[in-house]
């Protein structure tokens, strides 16, 4: 599969924790302004791969990668690349909502401030919260601690916080796994509306979610002998779910649906 102008592409990517190779030989291209889902059984390296896209992995001691990840024509792991700059351009939303113990307003404004935002902060906060479908719920309590929000609200706040920086790609690691179905639906709608401005990569355990919300899907699986994960199939979501090429994908996808 060859995509026109992918945002991110990996070349023979291996990711290690110490000596343990958690992810082997990944070659995928993340298409621009689309939602790409990464699915696969637990422990197959989905989060590891996702975190490699904005160099969050290196916050874990003793990790390293082989191969390269190309972002806008440059290797993210090149010698003169600043990981801070990478994370500024490629944002992330985590599995568990992790708002700062600051006010709701500060949560959104904080990163904009450290990056030297020139515009009107209040407007940025409002527009980010609006895009994250949270504005109406919190507009009167902006000064309140973010920790007082519900889990679903907190997660949307984390998304608002990520978009406030105006990254080009947003990585989401099971953003809805801690949420109830209604909040999950809200997040999915949100992703659809964010698609026109951002490229989204999402890890999910939920087959329905992947089928429903994503444009492309990447199926990961553990190699039987090495306990190391790799991408076994990467397709348009429709194709992957209806006419999987790989037998393992078929088993996994249908197994979940019975």
């Amino acid at each position: 599969m060859n995509l026109i102008s992918p945002v991110l592409e990996t070349h023979n990517l291996n990711i290690y924790y110490g000596d343990f190779r958690a992810v082997t030989d990944v070659n995928i291209q993340i298409p621009r302004h689309k939602i790409t889902a990464i699915i696969g059984p637990s422990g197959c390296g989905k989060s590891t791969l996702l975190r490699a896209f904005n160099r969050m992995n290196e916050l874990v001691p003793n990790t390293h990668i082989e191969g390269e990840i190309i972002f806008e024509g440059q290797n993210l792991y090149g010698r003169d690349i600043d990981p801070v700059e990478v994370r500024y351009r490629i944002g992330m939303v985590f599995q568990k909502p992790n708002p700062f113990p600051k006010s709701i307003y500060e949560n959104v404004a904080w990163a904009a401030r450290i990056h030297g935002y020139r515009g009107n902060l209040d407007e940025l906060v409002e527009s980010s919260l609006t895009k994250a479908a949270l504005w109406d719920e919190v507009k009167d309590i902006l000064k309140q601690s973010a920790l007082s929000l519900s889990g679903g609200q907190q997660q949307r706040l984390c998304i608002a916080r990520a978009i406030a920086v105006q990254p080009e790609v947003i990585l989401m690691d099971e953003p809805a796994s801690a949420l109830d179905p209604i909040a999950t639906l809200k997040i999915e709608e949100l992703m659809q509306s964010l698609k026109k401005d951002y490229t989204i990569v999402i890890v999910t355990h939920n087959m329905q979610q992947a089928a429903r919300a994503s444009d492309y899907t990447s199926m990961m699986m553990l190699a039987e002998n090495t306990r190391s994960g790799t991408v076994i199939e990467f397709e348009e979501t429709n194709t992957l779910f209806t006419r999987p090429k790989d037998k393992r994908t078929e088993d996994y996808v249908t197994g979940r649906f019975g």
């Binding site: 916050l59 500024y88 113990p101």
Partner: peptide, 24 residues
């Protein structure tokens, strides 16, 4: 997770240490 959140937004180590971890 708090540090991750800040790093994920493109904060430098110093910013994470002084502006997120220290206040917390």
């Amino acid at each position: 997770t708090l540090r991750d959140a800040a790093y994920g937004l493109g904060a430098t180590k110093l910013e994470v240490a002084i502006k997120i971890v220290l206040p917390a």
